[in-house]
Design a binder for these strands. Structure first.
Lengths: 191, 191
DNA sequence: CGCCGAGTTGAACTGAATCAAGAAACGTGG
DNA sequence: CCACGTTTCTTGATTCAGTTCAACTCGGCG
């Protein structure tokens, strides 16, 4: 199974040995469910590409409550890049929701790649842009929809994920409590 | 006053005549406060770069309520790019919050620029990435903070904007009602 | 078998929405 | 420059979605 960055590089028609050199600097890791890849507050230089399984990123707020920012099932890229760009400690935690295979990539390798091969940067720009669309949609959902509407929308958008993930994580992602989600689901049974 | 894209092209050391050609295809427009640049549901091919004044983008939800997604004061870029990438009608409206000077850029010009000059794409990738950070922070704020906390954070992050904008627009951006914001402000006076 | 995390259910509470009405600020035309 | 109508902002009363806290069930796993 080949990583997302490799795929992008290949689509950008980079030399095979450039790709190999990049790939050689990525570390394939097998991580157990629950293991932590990035801990908030620590220094962190890695971006992860899930090959199998599922990762997530989350923040812990001032009241000690967790909020899931993103899930990263197969093929997804997940990272707390903000701390890396700004050279500050990690803001988010990243851990494994399931036993997973991941590619661990040094952030500087990606920066280097973007600087050296702008065609890769162009592809990443499209990737980023799509992420922006998704985030705007999530913001709209948060400000305009009820918990029930957001849950329905989630199950429709990510039908596979909504079966794989524990309910309390979905609740956290949707910005509601596990109790509230439980009640929403109960209500939906009668519809 | 030169546009943001021009600045990026110049930083990317593109030929002066390429820059001029791009600039010649942008339309400088003077828009009155309240005038609508993009109407949801319409076809739309433009990205806007505010030179002076302030624009905003917003959605109208199923209950007829507006939600502001973004403000674009001087130097900012604003667009509903999702509809353009997907060749579907606009999802958002964009209008002028103040009398403004804007640069109207055909989306295809930008796509073209990115395809032809990957170094520009690389710069845009960084721009997009920063937008992603901001959006994540906004999501975290929405799920973890009270209306009061979000308002305080907004005034600290955008002190200039928080004075220029009408209160009900700030409320809309924060995802609360104007009444709620009015009460929050009253409460803050006693602190 | 016993434990522990996940999910459910109930009851009380609360932050913000809603609805309604009034006050203040604004700009537009005479 | 004033008068008017239109937004914008404020304040109060009520309602409601979702939180909180606590107790209980269930299923898996050592």
């Amino acid at each position: 199974m080949t990583g997302t960055f490799e795929k992008i590089m290949r689509e950008s028609l980079l030399d095979e040995d450039v790709i190999r050199r990049f790939a050689s600097r990525c570390v394939r890791r097998e991580v157990k469910k629950g293991s932590v890849l990035v801990r908030a507050g620590d220094e962190n230089h890695y971006t992860y590409n899930t090959l199998a399984g599922c990762l997530r990123s989350f923040v812990t707020d001032s009241k000690g409550k967790d909020h899931i920012l993103q899930f990263a099932p197969e093929g997804w890229i997940i990272a707390d890049q903000e701390n890396q760009v700004k050279a500050s400690p990690a803001l988010y935690c990243i851990d494994a929701v399931e036993n997973s295979h991941v590619l661990e990539i040094d952030f500087r390798e990606i920066e280097d790649l973007m600087a050296r091969y702008p065609e890769v940067a162009a592809k990443l720009a499209h990737l980023y842009r799509n992420r922006i669309f998704a985030l705007y949609n999530r913001i709209i959902a948060l400000v305009s929809q009820s918990a029930e509407e957001r849950y329905i929308h989630f199950t429709q958008t990510y039908p596979q994920l909504s079966h794989r993930l524990p309910q309390h994580m979905i609740a956290s992602y949707l910005g509601i409590t596990p109790e509230a989600l439980s009640r929403v689901r109960k209500r939906l049974l009668f519809k």
